[in-house]
Amino acid sequence: MIFTSELSKVDARELFQRQVDALQVNAAAYVERSGIDLPVQAEEVAERVLAAGTWFEAHLMEVHLERVLPYPIWWNASHGSAEHLPSPGWDASPFTSWQLRLIDELQAWYWLSLETALPHLQRVIRRGARADFRNNQPALLVEPKWFESPLGLIYGLALRLSRGDSSGSASLSEHLRSTTDRSGRNSLGPGVHG
């Protein structure tokens, strides 16, 4: 991934704009690939997030022997992908370009789903403590000083799945539940927080 904390304000703004501009296209690609539509109403979010996490969990580790795909906007191309580096080093990707594309598609799908669940969210460039590695990341501002990074969440989930932890759908659903609970603006409907 790109180390956003090292970006200038101009570069961070450009990354933010490019990533936000790609949300609809990437989410639509995930819908086409998985068959799981984006939720239109808040009441649909919890069920669809569970389905999206389950599908992602089942398909992330599939082997695809197609050509190398272009890297996502947020990926540092110098880190390569698993097609090029069968035994990745500390800064290389454990994922193929196809897997990186799938991560990108789900993070966009989840970003837009969070916005459906919590319409008060604001798209922002994260700012925090000077040494925070998450500075300059595109994020959603839930409340003052509380940011959500769908990309960080989905990439972390993919890393866990690549290591054999199969709790993807539960992780996404739990994240959604905790975010809506903590925001105090539950719009997901009855029974979601029981």
Rank of each mutant, 00 (worst) to 15 (best):
I2D: 02
L7S: 04
L7A: 03
K9G: 14
K9N: 13
R13D: 13
F16W: 10
Q19L: 04
Q24N: 15
V31M: 09
V31Q: 11
R33S: 09
P39L: 08
V40T: 06
E44Q: 15
V45T: 11
V45W: 06
A46C: 10
E47N: 09
L50V: 06
A52S: 15
M61Q: 13
H64C: 07
L65K: 14
R67T: 04
V68W: 04
P70H: 12
Y71T: 05
S78W: 02
G80I: 02
G80A: 05
E83G: 07
E83N: 08
L85M: 12
L85T: 12
L85H: 15
P88S: 04
W90G: 11
T96H: 13
T96N: 10
S97L: 05
L102I: 15
I103V: 10
I103H: 00
W109I: 01
W109H: 03
W109T: 08
Y110K: 12
P119W: 07
H120T: 13
I125E: 13
I125C: 08
R127H: 04
G128F: 07
R130G: 00
D132S: 13
F133M: 14
R134F: 14
N136L: 08
N136H: 12
L140A: 08
L140H: 13
V142L: 15
E143Y: 07
P144S: 06
W146N: 05
G152E: 15
L153P: 01
I154R: 04
Y155F: 11
S162G: 01
S166T: 12
G168R: 08
S169M: 06
S171G: 02
S171L: 15
L172Y: 00
H175Y: 05
S178R: 11
S178W: 10
T180R: 02
D181Q: 13
R182E: 05
S183V: 02
R185A: 13
S187T: 11
L188E: 09
G189M: 03
G191T: 03
H193S: 14
